[in-house]
């Protein structure tokens, strides 16, 4: 996410819509991208993006710069997207709980090797993210796609760094296991 100046934030907090629109322009790509990767549904990702910016607008005047604005946005985005995923997608939770069932379903559709050859990288990403439970998925999205470091991820998700580490490890083990099945002749 691009840096946003304190002056711009102060202006927006006083109700300046142009300043708020500029904040939206600088941060919306991050928010929408994270929401879309976590939820895997464009309509819900739009709703989450909208919710996140309405929360930012309504709470900006109470923001005291004790933490960075970026961290605050990361946290609101991750929480809102994860809540939407957990609330609206019982099927996803079931799949996450039964990882083997998910692997088998994916095997029937396409192997990882074949998927890599797909022109549409979106399908590959979506297929890989589908292998992960919501918490692992959030960690992978923030780390691999958005490039946050462990400290930023821990603040965004409100968990400690060792939990970030273990979620990433489990996520990668799952992806490797999926890849091995894909390599089978």
């Amino acid at each position: 996410m691009q840096d946003i100046s304190r002056d711009l934030l102060m202006q927006a907090s006083k109700g300046d819509m142009q300043a708020f629109e500029e904040i939206y322009r600088l941060a919306s790509s991050f928010v929408y991208s994270v929401a879309l990767r976590i939820i895997s549904n464009a309509d819900e990702a739009k709703e989450v993006t909208q919710d996140v910016f309405i929360k930012i607008y309504n709470n900006l005047r109470r923001f005291r710069f004790r933490s960075s604005f970026k961290t605050w946005v990361y946290r609101i985005t991750a929480n809102t997207a994860l809540n939407a995923l957990k609330k609206n997608s019982k099927e996803m939770s079931r799949r996450a709980a039964d990882y083997d069932v998910a692997l088998k379903a994916k095997d029937d559709r396409a192997t990882t090797t074949q998927a890599i050859e797909m022109d549409d990288n979106k399908k590959l990403l979506s297929s890989l993210l589908d292998m992960l439970n919501p918490d692992q998925r959030a960690c992978i999205v923030l780390r691999e796609i958005e490039g946050l470091d462990y400290k930023e991820i821990s603040r965004a998700l409100g968990i400690n760094i060792n939990t970030v580490r273990s979620r990433l490890k489990r996520a990668r083990e799952a992806l490797l296991a999926h890849g091995k099945r894909g390599d089978r002749p």
């Binding site: 990767r37 990288n121 691999e144 996520a171 992806l175 490797l176």
Partner: peptide, 21 residues
């Protein structure tokens, strides 16, 4: 299998309708 596919992810932009909402 677990790192490069994500690092090649394309950036996505929120559709205009989101800002309107």
């Amino acid at each position: 299998k677990a790192v490069e596919p994500f690092r090649n992810a394309q950036k996505v932009q929120a559709p205009d309708i989101v800002w309107e909402g």
